[in-house]
C-alpha cells in the first residue's frame, strides 16, 4: 500500500466519519490486507461476497429483534466454559492462571485494556464499566451449530467505550481478545452498532462462569461465535487481522458471521 493511497483513504474515511459512518470506508476496494481474506480460497471469496451483500442491503443500524422477559429460555454454555481449566478447550497457557487468580478475588483486580488506533489508550475495571450508562437487551443467541436461546444481557455499549478512548479516523476494525485462547474481530459498523455491548450481567445477575464472567461481548447482529467470552483486551486496528488460530477464521469459519 502506497503512502498516497493511505492518505487518500484516510481523508475519505475521515470525511465519511463526519457523516456518522465510520464503516462506510469498507466499500473501498483495493488493498487486500485491509479486507477480510478474499483470495486463494474459494470459500473465503464466497464469505466476502455475503459480507459485502449484507452490508450493502441492510441498513447499518438495522436492529435485531428484542424480546419480552417472558421469552427468556434455557441456554447452553459451550466451547470454553472455564479459562482456568488446563484440560478445557481453548485453554491459554499464557492467561489461564491469570484468570484463576482474578477469579479468586471476585475479579476486583480485573481490567479491560483498550488500545491500538485510539487517541487515549485506557484500561477499565469492572466498577468503571458498571458506572457507565448501561444498556439491557433481551436478545437471541444464534449458534452456528443450529440452536438458539433468548437471554437478557446488561452491559455498556462498545460504542461508549470506543468514544471514551477516541478511535482514530483510519480505524476500521475492532479485535476482541479473551482470557482463553480465543479472539475475534469485527468491523466498525458492528463495533458501533447500538446493540453491540460489553455485557457483565445476564438474566438479572452477574454473568455466570460458563457464559463469560466477568465480561463478554454481545455482537447481536452476528452468530454466537463472534460474541466472545472472558474479555481481556480490545485492540482497534486500521487493517484487517486474521488473528491466526485464535479465531473462528483460523478454524476455517467465515470471518463475517452475519448469516
Amino acid at each position: 500500500m502506497t503512502d498516497e493511497h493511505t492518505m487518500n483513504r484516510r481523508a475519505l474515511i475521515k470525511g465519511l466519519m463526519g457523516a456518522g459512518a465510520a464503516g462506510a470506508g469498507l466499500s473501498l476496494g483495493g488493498c487486500t490486507q485491509s479486507e477480510p481474506p478474499t483470495y486463494g480460497n474459494l470459500l473465503r471469496m464466497g464469505d466476502w461476497l455475503t459480507y459485502k451483500a449484507q452490508r450493502l442491503l441492510i441498513p447499518k443500524a438495522g436492529l435485531v429483534r428484542e424480546y419480552d422477559r417472558s421469552q427468556i429460555s434455557s441456554i447452553m454454555a459451550i466451547g470454553s466454559t472455564d479459562p482456568a481449566n488446563q484440560n478445557g478447550p481453548f485453554y491459554s497457557s499464557e492467561f489461564g492462571d491469570a484468570y484463576a487468580k482474578l477469579r479468586q478475588n471476585d475479579f476486583a483486580d480485573w481490567r479491560l485494556i483498550v488500545e491500538g488506533a485510539v487517541r487515549r489508550p485506557a484500561s477499565f475495571s469492572l466498577a468503571d464499566l458498571q458506572a457507565l450508562t448501561r444498556r439491557t437487551q433481551i436478545t437471541k443467541h444464534t449458534c452456528e451449530e443450529g440452536w438458539s436461546a433468548i437471554a437478557e444481557w446488561t452491559g455498556v455499549p462498545l460504542r461508549t467505550v470506543l468514544e471514551m478512548v477516541g478511535i482514530q479516523p483510519a480505524a476500521r476494525y475492532v479485535q476482541l481478545y479473551a482470557y482463553d485462547a480465543v479472539a475475534e474481530g469485527i468491523d466498525m459498523i458492528d463495533a458501533l452498532h447500538p446493540q453491540t455491548i460489553l455485557a457483565y450481567g445476564m438474566n438479572g445477575q452477574m454473568i455466570p462462569q460458563g457464559h463469560g464472567a466477568p465480561l463478554r461481548a454481545r455482537v447481536e447482529t452476528q452468530l454466537g461465535y463472534k460474541s466472545i467470552k472472558f474479555l481481556r483486551r480490545i485492540v482497534v486496528t486500521e487493517k484487517f487481522e486474521s488473528l491466526d488460530k485464535l479465531s473462528g477464521l483460523g478454524a476455517g469459519f467465515s470471518w463475517f458471521a452475519g448469516i
Partner: peptide, 17 residues
C-alpha cells in the same frame, strides 16, 4: 448438571457442555 437462573422466568437453566 443444570443450574437455574434465580432471576429468570420460565425456570430457565444453563448447563455447560
Amino acid at each position: 448438571p443444570a443450574i437455574p437462573f434465580r432471576t429468570a422466568p420460565n425456570g430457565a437453566v444453563t448447563a455447560a457442555r
